[in-house]
Computed example of a mutant assay.
Amino acid sequence: MVTFFKKYAEPSLLKYLVLFYTFIAGIDFCRSFYFLYQGPRKVVDSLSGLVIVGVIDWAVVLLFMGFVATLTKFLLTKKIAWRTIISLHVVLSIIQSYLVGFISPLILDYDLINRNYNFFEKVTHTFFFNVTTNILLYCSMLLIVYSYFYLRQIRNQEMEKKVLENNLIKLKLKTLENQLNPHFLFNTLNSISSLVKREPDTAQDMIADVSYLLRKFLEIDNENLISVQEELEILEHYVNILKQRFQEDFKIVQHVKESTHHIKIPRLLIQSIIENSIKHGFSQQNRKLLIDLTIKKEGDQLIISVENNGKKLPEHPVYSNSGIGIINMKERLQALYQDKYKFDITNSSLGVKTEIFIQLPPSLP
């Protein structure tokens, strides 16, 4: 139980509940003081007893609502069905009302209740006399509890959105840095220059590819998701340029299920994985790079797999876990999908394999 409260208790929320109920309890004491002790039909002779009842009531309600607030966080964390949560709160509101009904009969002796009643009859009388007020009070404090968690969820979503926007800016800068660096431009322009007279049609196609990529990279905005089909179109132009650069040393094979074309994925995700494979796939020992791209849907998961025949990962790889591109991809996936994705880079029979598993929304066909 102690572990439960340490894990799910919210001190800030408890502070708000204390402030709220202290205000309500103060007003309720003034009401009781007037009607029961000072009013025209005085029914209680002990002012100290009235004060004690008010203090005990204050402590019992706050302790009970502290438990309710902690339980609420647990229920929301475990994603319990709302039907169950509502039913539970109805029961808890009645329990709280009955607990409060024990306080007055224990301490006060007043004429409002026939003194011939036994203790439990007095408790029941007090319960029914105040049940409506107590349940409304429970609902008011419960509203504070859920408002607290709702507002915190909105705040967290805003923070995640800012992280995602910052990552998108980093992605744009990183993409421009990688794709528009002097070496890339020099090699591309040099290839175009050598083809202008010899193969003018091919040179024209390369110019079109470069123009398309420049436009797409510079158009990166706050649209975090694009369809698989749009991503493949960007990849096609990128691969066309690479093929002219590496000629027969580079080959990419695609196995993409048509049923995945409409599914939304992070912009330039596949291009980033391909880029990482090229960067680390070529070596002195491996001058011919083969990349196998597979995109498919299995159950409620989208699987993106990029396998290359390059040098295998060492026992403690550096780039697979700490490379800027990989870190950026993981941060974007985390911001978009929280715990509903998996990212793996492992050695395979061919070479190195990168796999991303994304859990799709239930409504997605």
Score class of each variant (00 low, 15 high):
residue 343 F to M: 06
residue 334 Q to R: 10
residue 331 E to V: 01
residue 343 F to Q: 07
residue 342 K to S: 10
residue 315 E to N: 15
residue 347 N to W: 12
residue 339 D to R: 08
residue 313 L to E: 00
residue 321 N to L: 09
residue 328 N to D: 08
residue 349 S to D: 13
residue 343 F to K: 06
residue 347 N to L: 13
residue 328 N to G: 10
residue 317 P to V: 04
residue 334 Q to V: 07
residue 339 D to Q: 07
residue 343 F to S: 05
residue 332 R to G: 03
residue 311 K to Y: 11
residue 338 Q to A: 07
residue 333 L to R: 02
residue 314 P to Q: 12
residue 348 S to M: 08
residue 315 E to V: 14
residue 334 Q to H: 14
residue 314 P to T: 11
residue 348 S to N: 08
residue 312 K to F: 08
residue 332 R to F: 04
residue 330 K to Q: 07
residue 318 V to F: 15
residue 316 H to Y: 12
residue 351 G to H: 02
residue 320 S to L: 03
residue 348 S to C: 09
residue 338 Q to T: 09
residue 328 N to Y: 07
residue 329 M to H: 03
residue 326 I to W: 03
residue 317 P to F: 01
residue 311 K to S: 14
residue 328 N to E: 07
residue 342 K to H: 15
residue 316 H to E: 12
residue 322 S to C: 12
residue 324 I to A: 13
residue 326 I to C: 03
residue 350 L to C: 12
residue 326 I to V: 13
residue 315 E to R: 15
residue 331 E to W: 04
residue 320 S to M: 05
residue 337 Y to W: 08
residue 338 Q to Y: 07
residue 333 L to A: 01
residue 345 I to D: 00
residue 316 H to W: 11
residue 344 D to K: 14
residue 315 E to P: 08
residue 336 L to C: 01
residue 348 S to F: 05
residue 350 L to N: 06
residue 331 E to I: 02
residue 315 E to F: 15
residue 339 D to A: 04
residue 320 S to H: 07
residue 324 I to S: 07
residue 329 M to A: 07
residue 319 Y to H: 15
residue 348 S to A: 09
residue 324 I to M: 12
residue 330 K to R: 15
residue 325 G to H: 04
residue 318 V to C: 13
residue 345 I to L: 06
residue 314 P to I: 10
residue 322 S to D: 13
residue 313 L to K: 10
residue 344 D to N: 11
residue 319 Y to M: 10
residue 336 L to E: 02
residue 317 P to G: 03
residue 349 S to N: 13
residue 350 L to Q: 09
residue 345 I to T: 00
residue 339 D to W: 01
residue 338 Q to F: 10
residue 329 M to W: 04
residue 337 Y to G: 00
residue 322 S to K: 15
residue 320 S to N: 06
residue 322 S to L: 14
residue 318 V to P: 06
residue 320 S to I: 01
residue 350 L to K: 11
residue 330 K to L: 05
residue 313 L to A: 04
residue 328 N to Q: 15
residue 335 A to Q: 00
residue 324 I to F: 14
residue 311 K to L: 13
residue 324 I to Q: 08
residue 334 Q to G: 05
residue 351 G to Y: 02
residue 331 E to P: 06
residue 336 L to N: 00
residue 317 P to I: 08
residue 336 L to H: 02
residue 350 L to W: 08
residue 331 E to T: 05
residue 326 I to A: 02
residue 342 K to E: 06
residue 323 G to A: 09
residue 311 K to R: 14
residue 340 K to C: 02
residue 324 I to G: 09
residue 333 L to M: 06
residue 330 K to I: 05
residue 351 G to I: 04
residue 342 K to A: 07
residue 324 I to Y: 09
residue 347 N to P: 14
residue 320 S to T: 07
residue 330 K to F: 04
residue 325 G to T: 05
residue 317 P to W: 00
residue 328 N to K: 14
residue 346 T to C: 12
residue 322 S to I: 13
residue 320 S to C: 10
residue 349 S to P: 06
residue 325 G to D: 01
residue 349 S to E: 13
residue 327 I to G: 12
residue 336 L to G: 01
residue 319 Y to S: 08
residue 326 I to F: 04
residue 323 G to V: 02
residue 336 L to F: 03
residue 325 G to F: 01
residue 338 Q to P: 02
residue 327 I to E: 08
residue 314 P to Y: 09
residue 316 H to G: 11
residue 333 L to V: 05
residue 316 H to L: 12
residue 351 G to E: 01
residue 340 K to W: 06
residue 315 E to D: 09
residue 349 S to R: 12
